[in-house]
Design a protein around this nucleic acid. Structure first.
Length: 586
DNA sequence: GCCGTTTTCGGCCCGACTGTTTTCAGTCG
């Protein structure tokens, strides 16, 4: 059983315990355990299990260590099985309805015998839910609405889609006279590959007109909250947007707070407490009153003196930390690194000098070689790598060997013509065949400036076969880089299963690059794997995989993801200027 | 269930909004 599966079971235990009404801190311990397991590499997990050192990880104690070990060894956990058997599966599903949490599910189940979404819908329609203590007409109506829209509401959104929705709203907010400052926050600002909802933050002394404007925008389908400090709407696309309104003095702490992630915030607040401070969206306060002798349980806490901060950097500094860029705020070790001064100097958009892996009309692209070159030059890029599909990708009009030779000649001629300053590298996206051999022979690969190798067929081979197939492919001569490691399409299709650790090791050993495919649907290899891979010496190339001129700019999206993966300029091949790039490829 | 330069027991991050209440529980982020 791998770490993802183990983490999923720990999370499931947490959910089931919630439905049982268990101690919330016990539930949190399971959830935290799941995240810790996920954040470990497979190797580290194996090593710790074998050595019995799981408990050295802060947040994993006796009970979790034993359960994780049992799951790894047997793939099962008696505790989980029993728990699962004691709770109807429909109850877990009911949790996905907005406004319905564990307490409500428990009440519905115990008092009305409701054990599925279908039964709940029926009970609401019959008016039985409104009569329940703690429920009412509005709750019943909200549940019905939530059931009707649950597919659309539950969906996450591609980062680009969220960005395109958010930008005009942010611009609108900034135009309002009452707005001093406005920013987006949340996973959009952290550049997570998918975004659940949009978070906007506004500094203002006069919140009401701003909130009123927000809920009255075109495209708002439903207003779910409308208060003095917060307004929430559901947009026509199903995406939820939250607006937070704070006085200008609180803007910094609120921006930090709503940028998150949750894990990062929890860790930072714990750090604040350990230093006698209390951190919330309202600012950084002295916390002595909380632990002082006069503090009574349940008594309202007057805030201690405010510790003034003018910027996020100053906020981190007050807590003894270097500035942590938003992309890194995932609670995955950035606070420790900021404390030790070992945060990386992250790659930036301006560092990118050229882009590899792009398609033309020769295969399944929509623009010609010349159009793509002109567009790359317009973006200020020094070089463009063409990589059309190889012959086995028939559906993508993959090039025969003869056609590829023609294309190489055309690219050489274009470079010689002097029509563009932007240099074009002749490459291919060569299929990795099911047995790990390559779609073009060695002599043809040798004629190219670079070779990307990718899997486009036989996705269902299984983890071991797929891993061996890819490793065999990258160990052949004249292979420059591996394309999209897992072939995933975000929100559409899971990637094929691979042992990323072994492939990374093989790539490092052969000096092969693994691409960071920057298409918004792919963003593959996943950012969570890059930090460790780069530490092993792996080089990446941020590749737009453009099929039309506008998509060349996807490299910017890739830079955001590379930053999430802690990558520096030195870890990214296509930050090299043209002359160095030519040398490197020679 | 986890954890300890206050503690091996008694805490565990913090606050807003809604709806159902008349002082607060549940949900959410």
């Amino acid at each position: 059983m791998n770490k993802i599966e183990i983490a999923a079971i720990l999370t499931d235990i947490g959910t089931l315990l919630e439905l049982k009404g268990e101690n919330p801190f016990k539930i949190r311990a399971y959830q935290a355990g799941a995240r810790l397991v996920e954040a470990m590499s497979e190797e580290e997990l194996d090593r710790r299990i074998a050595a019995g050192t799981l408990e050295e990880v802060k947040g994993i104690g006796d009970a979790l260590a034993q359960k994780i070990t049992e799951l790894k060894a047997t793939g099962r956990l008696g505790f989980h099985d029993q728990l699962k058997a004691s709770i109807p599966p429909g109850l877990v599903e009911m949790l996905r309805i907005p406004g319905v949490g564990p307490k409500k599910v428990k009440a519905l189940h115990e008092r009305l015998g409701i054990d599925s979404i279908a039964a709940l819908q029926q009970a609401c329609a019959q008016g039985r839910v409104a009569g329940l203590e703690g429920f009412g007409e509005k709750t019943q109506e909200k549940i019905l609405e939530g059931i009707r829209n649950r597919e659309q509401y539950g969906r996450r959104h591609l980062w680009t889609e969220a960005w395109e929705t958010a930008e005009p709203i942010l611009a609108g907010l900034r135009r309002l006279p009452q707005v001093r400052q406005a920013e987006h926050a949340g996973s959009l600002r952290r550049r997570l590959e998918t975004v659940g909802d949009l978070d906007f933050l506004v500094a203002t002394d006069d919140p009401k007109p701003v909130a009123d404007w927000f809920v009255a925008q075109p495209g708002v389908r439903e207003v779910t909250a409308h208060g003095e400090t917060k307004a929430s709407v559901r947009l026509e696309t199903g995406i939820q947007a939250d607006l937070r309104l704070v006085p200008p003095a609180q803007f910094v702490s609120a921006l930090h707070h709503f940028t998150g992630s949750k894990d990062h915030n929890v860790q930072l607040r714990q750090r604040a407490l350990a230093r006698g401070l209390s951190l919330s969206e309202w600012g950084l306060f002295s916390a002595e009153h909380k632990h002082g002798p006069s503090a009574e349980p349940g008594a309202p806490r007057p805030p201690g003196p405010l510790v003034a901060v003018k910027s996020e950097a100053a906020l981190f500094q007050k807590l003894g930390l270097a500035y942590i860029p938003p992309e890194l705020r995932e609670g995955l070790g950035e606070i420790e690194a900021a404390e030790q001064g070992t945060l990386p100097e992250l790659v930036e958009e301006a560092d990118i000098r050229g882009v590899f892996h792009n398609h033309t009309t020769a295969s399944d692209g929509h623009n010609t070689l010349e159009e793509m070159t002109a567009a790359a030059q317009a973006l200020g890029l020094e070089y463009l790598g063409i990589a059309d599909h190889s012959k086995s990708s028939v559906q993508a009009r993959g090039l025969t060997e003869a056609r590829l030779r023609e294309q190489i000649a055309a690219i050489r001629a274009l470079n010689a013509s002097g029509r563009f300053q932007c240099h074009v590298f002749a490459g291919t996206e060569c299929d990795i065949l099911p047995d790990g051999s390559l779609d073009y022979p060695e002599d043809l690969r040798a004629e190219l400036d670079y070779v990307v190798v990718s899997v486009h067929s036989a996705f269902r081979q299984g983890r071991e076969d797929m891993t061996r197939r890819i490793i065999r492919a990258i160990e052949q001569p004249h292979v420059t880089m591996l394309g999209h490691l897992t072939g995933r399409l975000l929100l559409e299709r899971e990637g094929y299963e691979v042992d990323a650790d072994r492939i990374v090791d093989a790539a490092v050993a052969r000096g092969v690059v693994i691409e960071l495919n920057a298409s918004p649907w792919r963003l593959d290899m996943d950012w969570r794997l890059w930090r460790k891979a780069a530490a092993k010496g792996l080089l990446t190339s941020i590749n737009p995989d453009a099929h039309r001129t506008e998509q060349l700019a996807y490299y910017r999206l890739g830079v955001g993801v590379a930053r999430k993966g802690w990558l520096t300029k030195a870890a990214v091949l296509n930050t090299k200027p043209l002359a160095q790039m030519k040398q490197w490829l020679a």
